[in-house]
Design a protein around this nucleic acid. Structure first.
Length: 455
RNA sequence: GUGGCUGUAGCUCAGUUGGUUAGAGCAUCAGAUUGUGGUUCUGAGGGUCGUGGGUUCGAGCCCCAUUAGCCACCCCA
């Protein structure tokens, strides 16, 4: 006998967890739909060359490749090293994120799509990363993107979506932070090292984790001189509300046309007054986000500080994503929800509504063979009334059937034994308070319907 | 890819300087209860102590190797 197990970094989702996850997905999906986003699904696997080179060297390493079927030995023998080998014997890979497949889709279907195209996509992605707490090799991404429009209205709408979803989920105290890559670009220009933008953003991105001194140390290790580090520090320590901070940056980065543009964009997004938020997004010049394809706004949604979970969503604008597939000049902006972390937040703050856990509402016990013919018509009536009901399939001991109802958390049990049949009624037991009532059989459906209406 | 920690029943874990037949709680099944669950009581089943080697009169415990899982780093969601 083999010991059952699942690949590392993957998870089984038991029924109650699936219900809670579906509640999150459903909430997000409903909001996406209400903003006019359309659903899209793409294959679990893509051609390898669609994915390679899109996520940097690290990304290529972390991609799950799919071994070709058939005789691969001959091809394999031509390989000089293992990197070449995997290119010879793998022509497909599991999708690594939802953005690149989306870009591929847009290019392939450009003639059918009405631009600006707003799509959302909720599907699993796979990464051959070494798993650790809160990180998996298979996990869901939940993305909404708009391509083919440069308007900052899109940014505002995406911020509004975050606001709506977290409000709908009841997450009090979440934060929305925004920055603009052009501002960071301006900073890199200011110190005369535009080519080091990526290094600078990667280091700044860790500010939360390693602190100001840590960032300075890392910048030093990345070969940035002391004078420049001092400038970056002056940039990082700016304080105040969004408006004040942007004003200070205006003077610090005044010489950079790029930075000015970024500042202007943020001012429009934050202060247009078009949308009223339950939680006002704030400008945070230290927000960097590692992904280096962002070119405009960058957005991060943070969990309430009480739960210490950090980022629960992020996004930004990227110019020319589809250019990689031969369709240049299309700008996109998108956001993503971190479902696994949102789950942890809701769990920790006890925010899952009780109704999420409900499945079967009524269980009919099977007392003897004769009870069947009474139970099935009632079952059908309840099911037509959208009340989930089931019959215990075996004529088992009474307490075994009761225990089943209890374990399944079924709130009502109906007993139709010989006594009840003689009286043309059914015994209905409320499992929460233990109260049992006899109800005339022909009014049972009505009775249960009304009972559930009241709950 | 680098480093640290841990592998004992289905699950969570005890297990003394190495010493008889390896334990507990939970879960499961049976009974107290032939028409009443979630609380109680009684009993039962369930183990190659991750795997292989070594030290020893004797190893769950010590040593070596190996493997799996967890955690941290890199990077990322």
């Amino acid at each position: 006998m083999i010991k059952p197990s699942i690949p590392k970094g993957t998870r089984d989702f038991s029924p109650e967890i699936v219900r809670r996850r579906n509640y999150i997905f459903q909430t997000i999906r409903t909001v996406f739909e209400s903003y006019g986003f359309q659903p899209l699904e793409t294959p679990a696997m893509e051609n390898l060359d669609t994915l390679t080179g899109k996520y940097g060297e690290e990304g290529d390493k972390l991609m799950f490749r799919i071994l070709d079927n058939g005789d691969i030995l001959g091809k394999a023998k031509q390989a000089k090293d293992s990197k070449e080998l995997s290119n010879l014997i793998c022509e497909k890979a599991l999708r690594y994120d939802l953005t690149i497949p989306f870009a591929r889709y847009v290019v392939m279907h450009q003639n059918e799509i009405a631009f600006p195209f707003k799509r959302y996509q909720i599907q699993p992605v796979w990464r051959a990363d070494r798993p650790q707490k809160g990180r998996y090799r298979e996990f869901y991404q939940c993305d909404a993107d708009i391509v083919g429009s440069n308007s900052l209205i899109n940014e505002i709408e995406l911020l509004s979506i975050y606001d709506q979803v977290f409000s709908d989920l009841g997450v009090d105290g979440f934060e929305l932070r925004v920055n603009n890559r052009k501002i960071l670009g301006g900073l890199a220009e200011l110190i005369g090292k535009p080519e080091l933008l990526t290094d600078i953003t990667i280091s700044i991105d860790k500010l939360d984790k390693i602190g100001l001194d840590g960032v300075k140390k890392e910048l030093e290790e990345r070969g940035i001189d002391a004078l420049s580090i001092e400038t970056i520090e002056r940039f990082l320590v700016i304080e105040g509300n969004s408006e004040e901070k942007l004003n200070q940056l205006q003077s610090l980065l005044g010489n950079s046309v790029t930075a000015q543009k970024g500042i202007g964009e943020l001012q429009e997004v934050l202060f247009s007054g078009d949308v009223s938020y339950s939680v006002q997004p704030v400008f945070d010049q230290t927000l960097a986000r590692g992904l280096n394809y962002y070119t405009g706004i960058i957005i991060e949604a943070k969990a309430p500080s009480a739960v210490k979970i950090g980022s629960i969503g992020g996004g930004g604008r990227y110019d020319d994503l589809t250019g990689l597939f031969g369709l240049p000049g299309i700008s996109g902006v998108g956001i993503s929800f971190g479902v696994d972390r949102i789950y942890d937040v809701l769990e920790e703050l006890n925010l899952f509504p009780n109704v999420v856990q409900q499945s079967t509402r009524v269980l009919f016990l099977q007392m003897d063979k004769e009870s069947r013919s009474f139970i099935f018509p009632l079952l059908q009536l309840l099911r037509k009334a959208k009340i989930a009901a089931e019959i215990y399939p075996d004529i088992a001991k009474f307490d075994k059937q009761m225990k089943y109802a209890n374990k399944r958390n079924i709130p009502f049990v109906v007993i139709i034994g010989e006594n009840e049949r003689n009286e043309k009624c059914a015994s209905v037991k409320n499992m929460q308070n233990g109260v049992q009532k006899k109800i005339a059989m022909d009014t049972l459906t009505e009775y249960l319907k009304n009972t559930f209406k009241m709950l």
